[in-house]
Simulated scan of single mutants.
Amino acid sequence: MFIVLHGEDDFSSREYLAKLLHDPRFVNNVERFDGPGGSLEAIRQACETFPFLSEGRLVVVDGLPKPKRESATKAAPADAASGTKSKRGAKKPSAAAQAKEFAGALAELGAHLPTITTLVIIVAEDLPKVHPLLEVAGAEVRLFAPPTGAALERWISGRAKVEQASITPEAVRLLASLANGQPRLLANEIAKLATYVDRGGTIDAAVVELLVPDSREARVFDLTDALARGERGPALRLLHELLGDGQQPLMILAMIARQVRVLAQVKDLAARGARPPEIASKVGMAPFLVEKTLNQARHFTLPQIEAAQRACLDVDAALKRSRMAPDMALDLLLTEFGHATTVT
């Protein structure tokens, strides 16, 4: 059998692979290869080796070689013009050609496997529709795309059942808004929440907000996002929801200040030409949060963000010196913050 597992949901594809690795049909007859550095001949020999004391043999190839962009300066212009070959009489194939040849050889191998062998290719990205591995007759091809919308909410509910817990619809929606469809992150959080409520317990929104740090940060993000759109009413409503939930004013201020600081960093790095992956690495944020913050930062100029940072410092001093009631101080901060936002 020839199986191709591909797609950006690497967590789910590896869970599927784990089931195969623990299949009793392949006990003591599993071989794994690193695709980018694997030897085709070694993979072929593994596929053709008869299983020992087992029904079948499982061979896993993890990843594929990626074509590298080759600089035009690597090729000598004179040789290119004259068609001169290397000293050994043959030109070395390009990285792209080698990657294509590797995939084609795996496809050929998959098309003629011994009946006792299962060959699995796992790739943590979507393969193009026209790809040798997807064209093998009789292949089992599974695309693992990160769930979104209603599918994501069903996935969260199902994952809670796996962890032997139930979960309320409100908690499901809150978790879905936090992880942006990242199954690996969600699975870790759900396992933690299920442990907290014990087997058979119920995960509700209060438990999520208590144990998942990003739940509070997500609401503060929504608050600053409302300010960026000039919607002071919704921002103030979110503020008072946080206060009503028992959040300490200084804690709320700290989260607002942190979000303003992140806005400043992301805005500055983007202005310097940094791409989202680089920004994520330098700021220490998840890539999907960088995209959200970039969208938010477009509504502010750097001077406006710097003014908001100073306002946060002023409110911090006022709260610590008890010069103003906490809710009034935060109300004034958001009011001034909102007035300072204009679309650039």
Rank of each mutant, 00 (worst) to 15 (best):
S157I: 08
A97Y: 13
A274E: 15
A107H: 10
M255T: 04
L109E: 15
P234I: 05
E336C: 12
D245Q: 09
K92Q: 12
L119T: 14
K66G: 01
Q259H: 13
L313C: 08
D331C: 07
R25P: 13
E31Y: 04
A274M: 02
V315Q: 12
A228N: 10
H299E: 02
L332G: 14
Q98T: 10
D331E: 09
L127K: 05
S157L: 07
E55V: 10
S215H: 00
Y16S: 10
P169A: 11
V315T: 08
L17W: 00
L119N: 13
E15Q: 06
G149W: 14
R199L: 11
A176N: 07
S166E: 14
A179S: 06
N28W: 05
Y196Q: 11
R275H: 03
Q265C: 04
A228F: 12
P147A: 03
S157A: 06
A254R: 11
G83D: 11
T118S: 06
L334M: 06
F288K: 15
I305T: 13
E125S: 04
T117I: 02
P67N: 12
A139R: 06
T49N: 08
P128N: 05
P77G: 14
E70H: 06
I305R: 13
L333C: 11
A111I: 05
A97S: 15
A297D: 05
G110T: 05
S86H: 02
V283N: 09
R216P: 09
A280F: 05
G35D: 01
S94Y: 09
K100Y: 03
V136N: 07
L17T: 15
A96I: 00
G233K: 01
I122F: 00
P77I: 02
T118R: 00
G89L: 04
A75G: 14
K129P: 15
A311S: 15
A160I: 04
L263Q: 11
E8G: 01
P36R: 02
R258E: 07
S166W: 00
L106C: 07
L178S: 08
I252S: 13
Q259Y: 05
S71C: 10
L143A: 02
V172N: 10
V197M: 01
T195W: 00
V197P: 09
F221I: 04
A78Y: 15
A81F: 07
R88H: 14
F33A: 11
G284A: 04
P249I: 01
L178K: 03
R88E: 11
A206W: 01
T344F: 15
A191N: 11
E241I: 09
A76L: 01
L193K: 01
A179H: 03
R25C: 13
I43P: 13
C47Q: 08
A329K: 14
E189F: 00
A105F: 09
P51I: 08
S71V: 01
L5D: 09
E31K: 03
S71N: 07
L64H: 05
A286F: 05
A318H: 03
N28A: 07
K100Q: 14
T341W: 05
I116A: 02
M324P: 01
